[in-house]
Simulated scan of single mutants.
Amino acid sequence: MTIEIKPGTNKINFKSQGINIVGVLYTPENFNSTKTYEGIVMTPPFPQVKDQVLANYGPKLAERGYVALAFDYSSKGESDSYDPKFRDDENMTRKWEDLRNAISYLGSLAFVEGINGIGFCGGGNIMSSTIITDLRVKAFASVSAMMASDMMQFADRNVFIQQVQAANAARQKMFETGEPVLHDYFGYTDPDFLKKNPNLSGTFAEGYDYYGTARGGTETYPNFTNVLISTVFETAAVNLGEHYADKLIQPYCGIVGAEADTAICTKAYFDKVTSAKEYHEIEGASHVGLYDVPENIEKVVEIIDTFFQKHSK
């Protein structure tokens, strides 16, 4: 069934490996399907759904004349799952395939001429790993991106081994029982989280303020959950983009909050990129501050618009 695309917010569907993916296409106020527009595909922070950060940026990008696509990965949000019992599976390699099919969806629209990519936080990993070999995306921007995962995943070898062994054990149990094994990786669903973690600082404190409260959590976004399938660490450490940054063909724009202690992850990736590149800091902003603070969003969108227009040909 063909869906008529109108100005504003459009609910859309496409298939990825036979699974129905639900997305939202944001179009300009004066949208006309007989004209052509620059397209943008967006990837959200881990482990978000399309209704959170992407819903803040989509309308703003549409105001700038873009057609912007946000979508829920398979097993997430409104999208279907390979198995109804195994929802909220944060499998990075499956996300690569979903992103490729999202790009295909945009490419199938007659009114989209040129596709750009924006990756937020962990979505930067997904985008950077995918577009190494997907040149349909012609320019790439990241926002608060956790691009250099090695410094996090492999910083402590013993911790890494414990995390992966726990993920492997969960996979074995799920295979043998046919039942999901779930885990809250950040502990935000614990009602005593703050009491148990009185000395939170930096990104950890910000994370709870967003995901553990109504600001960005399930109370406000019922399609979102902090509780995930327990195999995350099997694929979270496999970030191809970081190791192929010097092979990136597309122009790259890295945007971080000047106060974000995670900015080092974007900078490490940026330093390896050999294609045309830009690095921007938003003064006074933190990592999560680029998610939903209106004045920061306006600054980020201005940078991204200028960057994409510079590389529109």
Rank of each mutant, 00 (worst) to 15 (best):
I3W: 08
K6Y: 09
K6I: 08
P7G: 04
G8P: 02
G8Q: 12
T9L: 11
K11Q: 11
I12D: 04
F14S: 09
S16C: 05
S16H: 03
G18M: 08
I19F: 07
I21S: 05
G23D: 12
G23W: 02
G23S: 06
Y26W: 11
T27A: 01
T27Y: 05
P28F: 05
E29R: 04
S33G: 04
T34L: 12
T34D: 09
T34E: 12
T36S: 06
T36F: 03
Y37G: 12
Y37P: 15
G39S: 13
I40T: 14
P45N: 15
P47G: 13
Q48Y: 08
Q48C: 09
K50N: 03
V53T: 14
L54W: 01
A55Q: 12
A55K: 01
A55L: 02
N56L: 06
Y57M: 13
Y57W: 05
G58D: 03
K60E: 09
L61D: 08
E63H: 00
V67S: 02
A68E: 09
A70I: 06
Y73K: 05
Y73A: 15
S75G: 07
G77L: 02
G77W: 00
E78T: 06
S79Q: 03
S79Y: 05
S79V: 15
S81A: 14
S81M: 01
Y82C: 01
Y82K: 10
D83N: 14
D83M: 00
P84A: 12
R87P: 03
